[in-house]
C-alpha cells in the first residue's frame, strides 16, 4: 500500500563536524522557510549540536569523552584541517568576515521556524549525555522506530 508522502524533510545528523552541521542547519532552516515540516534526529557525534557547554559523563570513560568532545556546538571542529582547534578558529574568522550566520544562530533560527530536534536515546546513554545536559528546546529522546516512522512518509530524507 502506497501511502501519501508528507511535505516533510527528515534528517539523521550523525556528524558533529562544524561543516556538516552547517549543511544540516542550513537545509533545515531553508526547508522550514519553504513551508516544509522538518525533523532532525541527532545521534552519536551529532549530539554535540544539542549539548550545553556543561561537562558530561559519569564513568571514567564518559568523563574523558566529555572533556574531549564536550563544549557544545561552538566547539564543533571542521571535518578537515582541525589542527587541534586552529581550524575552527580560522573558519570562524573567515565566516564572520563574510557575515555568515553562526551555528548557534542557525540552530536558534531553526527553533524559531518550528524545526523539531530529537536526540537518540541509545547514543545519549552510551555517551553519557543526559537530557538535562542538552538545550531546553530538544524534544524527548527517541529511537530508530520513531525516526523510521517519520522518514517513511517524508518527501526528503537525509543522512548527514
Amino acid at each position: 500500500m502506497e501511502e501519501e508522502k508528507k511535505n516533510r524533510v527528515s534528517m539523521v545528523v550523525l556528524s558533529g563536524d562544524m561543516d556538516k552541521l552547517f549543511a544540516a542547519f542550513i537545509i533545515a532552516t531553508g526547508a522550514a522557510a519553504s513551508g516544509m515540516e522538518v525533523v532532525m534526529f541527532f545521534t552519536f557525534w551529532g549530539l554535540k549540536a544539542l549539548q550545553k557547554k556543561e561537562a558530561t559523563g559519569k564513568s571514567f570513560f564518559g568523563r574523558m569523552l566529555g572533556m574531549i568532545n564536550g563544549g557544545g556546538i561552538t566547539k564543533a571542529n571542521p571535518s578537515k584541517y582541525g589542527f587541534g582547534g586552529m581550524g575552527r578558529w580560522m573558519f570562524g574568522k573567515m565566516m564572520k568576515s563574510k557575515n555568515v550566520t553562526s551555528l548557534v544562530e542557525l540552530r536558534q533560527l531553526a527553533i524559531e521556524l518550528g524545526v523539531k530536534m530529537y536526540g537518540c536515546q541509545m547514543s545519549m546513554d552510551v555517551m553519557e549525555i543526559p537530557r538535562e545536559k542538552m538545550i531546553d528546546e530538544v524534544e524527548e529522546p527517541v529511537g530508530v522506530g520513531f525516526f523510521l516512522e517519520q522518514a517513511r512518509d517524508s518527501r526528503i530524507s537525509l543522512f548527514i
Binding site: I26, G30, A32, A33, S34, N99, V100, T101, L109
Partner: peptide
Amino acid sequence: LLCPLPMV
C-alpha cells in the same frame, strides 16, 4: 545576508 537568510 547570506544563505539561507535571504529566503528565510
